[in-house]
Computed example of a mutant assay.
Amino acid sequence: MALFDLPLEELRGYRSLSAEPADFDAFWTKTLDDAREHDLDARFERVDSALASVQVHDVTFAGFGGHPVKGWLVLPAGTREQVPVVVEFLGYGGGRGLPHTHLLWASAGFAHFVMDTRGQGSGWANGDTADPVGSAPAVPGYLTRGIEDPHEFYYRRVFTDAVRAVEAARAHPLTDASRTAAVGMSQGGGVALAVGGLVPDLVAIAPDVPFMCDFPRATTFTDRPPYREVGDYLRTHRGRTEQAARTLAYFDGVHFAARGRAPALFSAAMEDQTCPPSTVFAAFNAYAHEDKQIEVYDFNDHEGGGPFQEAVQLRWLPGRLTA
Rank of each mutant, 00 (worst) to 15 (best):
M270P: 05
W316N: 14
M270D: 02
A283N: 12
A288V: 11
F308P: 01
P277M: 02
P307N: 12
A311G: 03
E303G: 15
G306V: 02
F281I: 06
R315Y: 08
D272C: 04
Q313D: 11
L314R: 14
P307C: 03
D272E: 01
K292I: 09
E303L: 14
E295M: 10
A282Y: 06
V280S: 00
N300F: 08
Q273Y: 00
E290D: 05
A282D: 08
E303H: 13
V280K: 05
I294W: 02
F281M: 00
E290C: 06
A283T: 11
F308I: 10
G304A: 12
E295C: 04
R315N: 11
C275P: 00
H289K: 00
V296D: 05
E303M: 15
T279L: 03
P307R: 14
Q273K: 00
A283M: 10
N300H: 15
P307A: 15
P307V: 15
T274C: 10
K292S: 03
G305I: 09
A288T: 11
A286E: 01
E295A: 10
P277H: 06
Q313T: 10
Y287M: 03
P276L: 08
D272Y: 06
S278D: 03
D298Q: 14
P276A: 06
D291F: 07
P276R: 03
Q313S: 10
G304Y: 00
I294R: 01
H289N: 09
G304I: 09
A288G: 12
L314N: 08
N285I: 04
F281G: 08
P276K: 00
F299D: 15
I294C: 07
N285L: 03
Q309W: 15
G304T: 09
P276N: 08
V296E: 04
H289D: 08
Y287V: 01
E271F: 01
D301R: 14
T279H: 06
H289F: 02
Q273A: 07
Q309M: 15
